[in-house]
């Protein structure tokens, strides 16, 4: 019984961390688009679609902690991560942009920020989705 409680505690802490990450990513992306007036490209929008609902899904998943939160969040995290990988491949010119689905509006390879020479907006997105993927995997191993 005690072991179960411990596991739930670890699960709670991990999903809480996920919630924090998703919230930071959400507010950060809103800051870029609404305050700094950077226009979002198509791929950014798809990633936002995956990221924003996670804030609410993780939140409902920790009050009280329910391991089903994994089942509900994983598809979003995984799809978001895939799009982020694709976006970064385009952005760093590993894939040619001609096959990008964004021909109108803002190009998906427009560079808005470049902190310390490597931190760009698509990079931040990929980093958060990757962290979420890792945290969810750990949660799955610990709790299930």
């Amino acid at each position: 019984m005690k072991a179960n409680g411990d596991r739930a505690n670890i699960g709670w802490a991990l999903i809480f961390t996920c919630w924090l990450l998703a919230s930071i990513a959400t507010l950060g992306s809103l800051f870029f688009s609404e305050i700094m007036n950077f226009s979002s490209c198509v791929l950014c929008w798809y990633q936002r679609i995956c990221m924003y609902p996670l804030v609410l899904i993780f939140l409902s998943g920790i009050f009280p902690f329910d391991k089903k939160v994994l089942r509900f969040s994983f598809p979003l995290v995984f799809v978001g991560w895939m799009i982020a990988v694709y976006h970064n491949l385009l952005y760093y010119k590993i894939l040619p942009e001609s096959i990008a689905p964004c021909s109108q509006g803002v190009s998906c390879t427009t560079v808005y920020i470049e902190w310390f020479g490597f931190i760009t907006i698509p990079f931040l997105s990929l980093a958060v989705f990757s962290f979420l993927l890792i945290l969810l995997t750990i949660t799955y191993r610990k709790v299930d």
Binding site: W12, F16, L20, S23, L27, L30, F31, I35, I62, F63
Partner: peptide, 23 residues
Amino acid sequence: RKILVLFSAFTLIFLFFISVKLY
């Protein structure tokens, strides 16, 4: 836990608005 989450949420939103002002 509720306090922790509420506190985090307020901190994040507070930081957001401070950044808006500074920017």
